[in-house]
């Protein structure tokens, strides 16, 4: 084991270390940036009450009984008080496909976690508004 061969090994290690340090990371720094979500991403839903006719086809299509329409609730126009239970939803997309009036859509908001379980029961007002924009791809902020 000569002096120069040891030095050579050290340089080999240093070469890999430096190439790792200056390489782009494979992961994204999540709360500050998000990955690009495709067009068809099945995230949380948004309900457009102007188009809804309260036909309840989404309720019938749902395999896990996550949607409920309260037709006796007169507070909302067209009687379409849509309640969404995200503790049950499996994001299969059958309700969106069942809607013939384009009143229910998926959004790109996929991070739904809440501190309390009850907050995942979306009431009619909450399901028709996006409380925040979906996280956009903000480019390489830290790169």
């Amino acid at each position: 084991m000569g002096f120069f061969s040891t030095l050579g090994e050290i340089f080999t290690i240093l070469k890999h270390v430096f190439s790792q340090v200056f390489e782009r990371p494979f992961t994204v720094l999540y709360p500050y940036e998000d990955r690009e979500h495709p067009e068809r991403t099945r995230g949380r839903h948004i309900h457009i009450r102007e188009k809804c006719t309260a036909c309840a086809q989404c309720v019938r299509a749902c395999p896990v009984v996550a949607i409920r329409i309260d037709k006796s609730d007169r507070k909302y126009e067209k009687d379409a008080a849509l309640y969404f239970d995200y503790t049950r939803c499996i994001f299969c997309g059958l309700c969106v496909q069942a809607c013939r009036f384009n009143a229910l859509f998926h959004t790109k908001v996929v991070d739904l976690s809440e501190p309390e379980r009850e907050r995942l029961h979306y009431d009619p007002e909450r399901i028709e508004t996006l409380d925040r924009d979906p996280l956009e791809w903000r480019g390489s902020r830290f790169r």
């Binding site: 495709p38 991403t41 099945r42 499996i90 059958l94």
Partner: peptide, 12 residues
């Protein structure tokens, strides 16, 4: 798969 169906595993 996600680009096609909107989901990575539960493709439906």
């Amino acid at each position: 798969f996600e680009e096609l169906t909107g989901s990575r595993h539960a493709v439906s």
